[in-house]
Every structure is written in C-alpha cells, then in structure tokens.
Amino acid sequence: MIELKNIEKYYANKGVKSYILRHVTTTIKQGEFVSIMGPSGAGKSTLLNILGMLEEPTYGTYEFMGENVTSLNERKRIELYRNHIGFVFQAYHLIDEMTVYENIEAPLLYKKVGSAERASRIANLLDRFNIVAKKDLFPNQLSGGQQQLVGIARALAAQPSIILADEPTGNLQSAQAEEIMQLFQKLNKEDGITIIQVTHSEKNAEYGNRILHIADGVVKGDVQV
C-alpha cells in the first residue's frame, strides 16, 4: 500500500543542511498497525506528515496505492488523501466553532457526499462511539477523551483506508488513553483499516503489530510484534 524509497528531508540553513530524515526506505502493507517510536526530534512527526502528504520530502519517491505521490499536482494529491487518509492529532484539533455533529460532517462535505448518505454515516458513527447525546455540543464542552473520540469519528467519517495518528493519547489520562488504543485495535482488526501512529509509549506501541524505531532521522529498527 505504501512504498517509501530513500526518503530524505532536510532544511538548508546558511548553507548547512540540517537533516530531519535520511534514507528512509520501507513498505507498509494494507491492514498493518504500525507504531513509529523514537526520542523527541527524531523525525517521527515529519515522517507521518510525509506519509499524510502534508509535507513533501526533499528527495526520494513515495508511492501510495500504486501512485507516485511526489509527482502529483496539488489538486490530485488533495483528491487522493481526501478519499483515503484520515488524521488523528494529539491536540484533537476539532474546529471550535463547529458542533460535534458538524465536525464529523466536515470531511464529508469536502468529499461531496450526498446529504442523506451523510446523515446516516454520522448517525452510525455517533452511535458506535456512544456520543449521540453530545452531538450538538461544542468541543470546549467535552472532556479530552471525548474530544479525541470525536476526532477519531471525524477521521473515520470519510471511510479512509488508512488512519495516521500523531501521538493520539499524548494529552489523555491513562484510562482514557487505553480506551482509545483499544478502539484503534478494534478498527484495525475488525474493519481492516491500516493504522500508523506516532507514540512515545511502549505500552501503546504494543497494541500494533509492527514498530519502526527512528533516531536522528534514520530507521534504526523494524520489529514485528
């Protein structure tokens, strides 16, 4: 599903290249649950952003479902991730001015899903995550765990084939964090959604089936769990 070949990312500063990623080459198959681990500043988030097409690598090729992402124009790229990629963030990043319902609806609007279909999908998600009663509340009226649930529901609304999560439990208490990780595991096993998460916690990494260790921009280890 994902093929990275020799991905490099650096910033040139006063003639000095400071590398974020070096020679990253890996393949991620459909249905995998990958955790990217490593110390702060190792380049985990950058790798995730490149995977999510939010950043471009300075060098190397990235194939997503057989298409070469690095050579696509912006319009095509947006089209591609609109349909296949869902994002979950550490800080939830819900839109404060939208209700829970509207937040979940937003990606569907960009995907131009018809209104009846929208309503049924959202109802389904609200039901599944037990947040039906909260649908008209605004994000700041929810707890952190609930916000992250909405965040995941939003990522799932567009029915992506892959979810990218940047420290999804970083801001949560351990009980809530566990709940979220179990949800991810369930999505991976039951719905066959590919999941790639960045995490600091060994415990969280064990929910997945593969761990990529990164340090100083280089992949140091690739372990199957």
Binding site: L54, H93, Y110
Partner: peptide, 16 residues
C-alpha cells in the same frame, strides 16, 4: 489558523 489547518487536513482546498 487551527480551523484552516484542520480543514486543509480534512481535504479542503485553498479555493474553498
């Protein structure tokens, strides 16, 4: 800014 960032990630383009 956050709204813009999130919307872009959700698949909105600049035009929208």
């Amino acid at each position: 800014a956050k709204e813009v960032g999130v919307k872009k990630v959700l698949g909105s383009n600049k035009h929208q």
